[in-house]
Amino acid sequence: MTTRTPTCRAALVAATGLASLVLAACGGGGGAGGVRAGHGSSANPSASTATAHNAQDVAFAQGMIPHHQQALEMARLADGRASSARVKDLAARIEKAQDPEIRTMTGWLKTWGAQVPMAGTDRSGHAGMSGMSDMMSDDDMAALKKAGGKDFDTMFLSLMVDHHQGAVAMATTEKRKGEYGPAKGMAGGIVSAQNAEIKEMKQLLGEGGSKG
C-alpha cells in the first residue's frame, strides 16, 4: 500500500493537470463561443433591422386602414344595388384584397405600439393626411346607398376611381419614403393592383358602366 500510494498520487496529480488543461481549453472555446454568441446577439439587431420602421410606415398604415375600410363599405353595397355583373365582380375582388390588408396593417401598428384607427373613424380627421382628400364624404356615401341599377354602377365606378387614385398616391409615397420592408412590399402591390383596377373601371365607365 505504501508503494502504491505515491503512484496513485502521481496519477491523480497528472489527471488533475490534464483536467485543468481540458477545462482551460473548453473555457477558451466557451470564450470564443461567447464572442460568437455576442455576434449572434448582434444578429438580433439585424433581426430588429428586419422589423425596423419609420414615421412614414406608421403614417401609411394609419392612413391606409380607414381608406381601405371605406373602400370595403362601398364594395359591400354593390351586391344588392349594382346592375352589372362586372361591377359586382370588381367589388368582390376589392373586398377580397383589402380586408386581409387591413388585418395585416393593424398587426403592424399593434407591434409598433402605434394607435390603430378604429372602424367608423370620423373621416374629417384624415383631411390633413397626404393622399386622404379622395376619401368619400358622408354625403357621397349616403347618395351611393340610395342609388341602384345603372345609376349605382356609374356612381360607384366614378367614386372608386378617385378613391383608388388616392390609395395609389399614398402607396407611392410609402415606396419612396418607408423603411419597413413588408409595408413597402404591400405598397408596391397596391400600386400595381389598383392601377389595373382604375384602368378596368374607366373602361367600364366608357361602356356605360353596367354591361354584364
Rank of each mutant, 00 (worst) to 15 (best):
T106V: 11
G33E: 06
S158K: 15
K202W: 03
R123I: 05
A183V: 07
D162C: 09
I94W: 05
S42V: 11
T3Y: 01
A97I: 11
A92N: 03
G34Y: 08
G27K: 00
G63Y: 02
K199L: 03
G29L: 12
A24Y: 02
T106W: 05
A183D: 03
A147H: 06
E197H: 00
G149F: 07
M135G: 02
V87D: 08
Q70I: 06
S130D: 10
I102M: 04
G38I: 12
L204V: 01
G113S: 15
Q69T: 07
L205M: 08
A47L: 13
T3K: 03
D151E: 13
V35N: 09
L18E: 03
S20F: 10
N44Y: 13
D122W: 04
I65P: 00
D134C: 05
A85F: 05
D99H: 08
I94Y: 06
G149S: 04
A167D: 02
T172C: 01
L77G: 01
A59M: 01
G148S: 15
H39Q: 10
E101P: 08
A97L: 13
H67S: 00
G34E: 03
A32T: 08
S210L: 15
A37M: 15
E197V: 02
H67E: 06
G63H: 02
K145M: 00
A19V: 09
T111E: 12
S192N: 09
Q98P: 03
N44W: 10
T51R: 06
A114S: 15
